[in-house]
Nucleic acid binder design. Sequence first.
DNA 1: ACAAAAGTGTTAAGAATACACCCATGT
DNA 2: ACATGGGTGTATTCTTAACACTTTTGT
Lengths: 224, 224
Amino acid sequence: MSNTYQPPILTVDSVIFMIINDELSVLLIERADEPFKGKWALPGGYCAAGETTHAAMARILSTKAGLKTTSLSLVEQLYTFDTVARDPRGHAVSVTYMGLGEAIEIKKSSTAQKPQFFPVKKLPELAYDHGDIIKYANDRLISKISYTNAAYALLPKLFTMTQLQSVYEAILGHDLDKRNFRKKYLSLDIVEPTSDYYQEGAHRPAQLYKFKQQNLQTHSRSID
Amino acid sequence: MSNTYQPPILTVDSVIFMIINDELSVLLIERADEPFKGKWALPGGYCAAGETTHAAMARILSTKAGLKTTSLSLVEQLYTFDTVARDPRGHAVSVTYMGLGEAIEIKKSSTAQKPQFFPVKKLPELAYDHGDIIKYANDRLISKISYTNAAYALLPKLFTMTQLQSVYEAILGHDLDKRNFRKKYLSLDIVEPTSDYYQEGAHRPAQLYKFKQQNLQTHSRSID
DNA sequence: ACAAAAGTGTTAAGAATACACCCATGT
DNA sequence: ACATGGGTGTATTCTTAACACTTTTGT
């Protein structure tokens, strides 16, 4: 309004989930400086005038975690936290995003900030309110995967029904019945079988499936 | 990062819903100045350093629309929009909130900006991207009312089953079967009958019910 | 007696759950 | 031949959906 208007500091934090060894895992960075030096934090940083929050997220992920946004198959805004006393520099507002991708190797050499994935069940000591943010993201992911095809973003293009089921089990945190899961998932009509098979180990090869759509779609019934 | 850091402009916009004459309606203000002079807009304004977005929303609703936040039984953050070219003054980020309340009279005298409720089916010409924001809020409301007790925020403490059903019909946009609605809603165990009755017109009086909880609760099955 | 909204039950179809064995492969 | 994970069907219970008449009141 007046020419003395001073906006709050605006930051962006990202919760990047991947399934690693059948566990839902989140990308964290060890803080090199105070505050919270030595603690682990979500990749985050400042959003500047003229830069969208989404662009800021992409820039920060790339520079601080060596992760290209192109490795993420699904990015969704989560929530905007008022964090009046969170940053010692004063009042800040933090826009948070959730990103999902197929498991990849992070190049540790690309930064001094040691990006690393941790299973959400075994998190280290966290900086700021990042524990709350991860909890919020995890809750959102549980509901997204229940009523949408979001699992496509955590799997390779072709995958077996067992892999798909284990993504659900990792996120929902409980086991599912194999027969019921397959029956219901196929009846949702969002995946289709391919003519390829995946052979691994001393057992029958598994048929490979793919999602009909590689973008977020809501389906009729929910999985839980 | 550096001492030359300049954050984007931060604004807050509110989508206030009430049920008026059995129609879902949204609070709008006629713009007195350019840009979009004469068009209708969501109540919104700047968020300043040291002020949380929620506090900014309360202040703006009160000063621009004469509406106290205490008239709202449920306030929920919706989404944060990057609006690079939205405000002619340059890059802005807008945090949006949805507020639900029981239908009340707005004191028009309290401001020059003519706050007024419009049915969401019959909106006037809107400023900025406020049509998109209202659509987003409406979608969120539809899903919230389907799997939570959010309807409590749009009704008086005591209400009849017919009133409750008509809240659902106004939001979902289609009619529901009276017997099935009552059976299912009662089986959710989130409302309870009182010993009071509501007598209006030349017909049998209606039993009054109340919600067991006056805060947001997720329930097991969904209404649609 | 009539108009107007309140209130109430049954049946059929669809969805969810529980549960155990055979199949194809490598060693 | 055996170990390993892949793949499949049925019976029961629960949930949803479709549908019409009686009750209570004021005029």
